[in-house]
Design a protein around this nucleic acid. Structure first.
Length: 469
RNA sequence: GGCGUGGUAGCCAAGUGGUAAGGCGGGAGUCUGCAAAACUCUUACUCACCGGUUCGAAUCCGGUCCACGCCUCCA
């Protein structure tokens, strides 16, 4: 089954053809570790996780690289403010970042290179650019990339630099550049940097932002690799600059497939640190939302569509996952003996095909999830009519585990809550009252159970207790 | 100002030339002592608006309006 992605470079849906058979190299722009990431940031990381899992689902071995930007204006500024070293400061947020990824069930990437661990690689790359004439040293001692030397500049963002001049503001501290859109490869040290500096052929300083991704992707994935992703806001100038650097230095194409995810929005506006309209995972945890619930929300809209975040949707996600959990428990109670019918094999196989078709079509999550609902309804129907066997129920559960390899939200093997003795006993008394047609008491006990956090449902096989989450 | 993305039911959301998936919510029913759960049926003659192309358009083309994003650190 072919896999398709929407390639930002050509603005079209293309069949994925990796450089190496059965292997996909993927570079995903990671966080700047100066603060806790917010859920808008996590939308991107979850999209990348979905992409990663989809590639694996289609049989590819994935080599994923996610950079950690641990030196830039903000990390320097805030570490100074905190009165601790840059490393000490960023270590705290690196740790928090990995904890958050784990909470959201994001599979670890193969490499998490930090910028500060790759200064020599960056220096080497800048030297290559200098030798080839793409870089120049400005009056302030910084090294800049000359966009004029790279005619293809703007090909990703479809920006024609000729028409860009009027709107671009010029920062006063960047007076030294030849052209406004030229960007820094190496920033000469100034006193605001404090003790953050590395020796280089151009003197003391630190790398520019874009160079780390070019240098590190080259090191871990090669001069040309398959997939590069990030938020749409990274498309310009960051990814455009990466292309300029890498292609100028290596003389070959940088990336074959560019995938960008749209923003998480709040009340119609982009969720961002600067607007202050953001929520962190901590905020949501305090409201009792779980990792799978948050993951579901961030996953449930197509990655190239803006996703409006609301707490109402969080509640819906909670209810939806609860429904699936109940469904799995119900399947596990099936005891009827018998083989798997052809009809059942057909139903399950067809659901899997629909799912795979959809997720392989540029990660069409809506259609993919529709396959889950379809299979759930079929299974419920058959359980209602008692037509389903234990083996068939297992087959369905296995299929949901298969779906969850990609989705990572279902917890099919989730254990039923242990029922406390007190609750068990109340349920027993209620059943006795019910048998003797003392419905008033039976209902009263059911209400009491509800107050204690347990819902009692009468099924064909007798009462069933469910914990209210 | 330049560039880009998008506007589909009460809400969320697929569908990109062949006659509107799915979820939530609403309505009616089956089951039940009653609930709950589950199931069944139902809920857009219509896809922001106006023209055009076509046997046929939500899908293609032109225009208009609206929203958001990028052009400055940003997932």
């Amino acid at each position: 089954m072919p896999l398709y992605f929407f390639n930002t470079m050509n603005r079209s849906r293309e069949e994925f053809r990796p450089l190496k058979e059965n292997e996909a190299g993927m570079y995903t722009c990671g966080p700047t570790v100066y603060n806790f990431a917010h859920i808008g940031n996590f939308r991107a990381y979850i999209f990348e996780d979905l992409l990663r899992r989809t590639l694996k689902y289609f049989g590819y071995k994935v080599i994923q690289v996610m950079n950690l930007t641990d030196v830039d204006d903000k990390t320097i500024r805030d570490s100074q403010k905190a009165g601790i070293s840059l490393n000490e400061y960023t270590a705290k947020y690196k740790k928090a970042f990995f904890e958050d990824l784990a909470f959201l069930n994001v599979e670890p990437a193969e490499h998490y290179p930090a910028a500060t661990d790759h200064i020599p690689e960056m220096i080497k790359l800048i030297q290559m650019l200098q030798e080839k004439g793409f870089a120049y040293k400005a009056e302030d001692g910084s090294i800049y990339y000359s966009i004029a030397k790279f005619p293809e500049y703007g090909k990703l963002a479809k920006i024609d630099m000729e028409n860009q001049k009027s709107g671009v503001r010029v920062k006063t501290d960047e007076y030294a550049k030849d052209a406004v859109a030229d960007f820094a490869l190496w920033k000469a040290w100034d006193e605001k940097d404090g003790d953050v500096a590395w020796e280089s052929p151009w003197g003391k300083g630190r790398p520019g932002w874009h160079i780390e991704c070019s240098a590190m992707s080259m090191k871990y994935l090669g001069n040309t690799f398959d997939i590069h992703t990030g938020g749409i806001d990274n498309m310009f100038p960051h990814h455009e600059d990466e292309i300029a650097q890498s292609e100028a230095a290596n003389g070959c194409r940088y990336v074959n497939y560019w995938l960008h995810c749209a923003h998480l929005i709040v009340n119609g506006e982009k969720m961002s640190k600067s607007l202050g309209n953001f929520f962190t995972l901590k905020d949501l945890k305090e409201k009792n939302f779980t990792g799978p619930e948050i993951r579901w929300i961030l996953l449930s809209a197509h990655y190239r569509k803006k996703l409006n975040f609301t707490f109402e949707d969080c509640e819906k996600a909670k209810a939806l996952l609860k429904k699936f959990a109940d469904f799995f428990l119900r399947l596990k109670t099936v005891e009827k003996a018998g083989k798997i019918s052809d009809k059942m094999s057909e139903i399950v196989k067809s659901a899997q095909n629909s799912f795979k078709d959809a997720i392989g079509d540029d990660l069409n999550i809506s259609e993919a999830v529709a396959a889950l609902f379809g299979l759930e309804r079929e299974a419920n129907k058959l359980m209602d009519s008692g037509e389903i066997t234990k083996e068939e129920a297992s087959l369905i559960l296995e299929q949901f585990k298969d779906f969850d390899k990609v989705l990572g939200v279902l917890n099919v093997d989730g254990q039923e809550e242990k029922i406390p003795e007190e609750i068990e006993e109340l349920a027993g008394r209620r059943q006795a009252a019910r048998k003797s047609k003392n419905f008033a008491e039976a209902d009263a006990i059911r209400d009491e159970l509800k107050r204690k956090g347990w819902v009692l449902e009468d099924t064909a096989k007798g009462p069933r207790l469910k914990k209210i989450s």
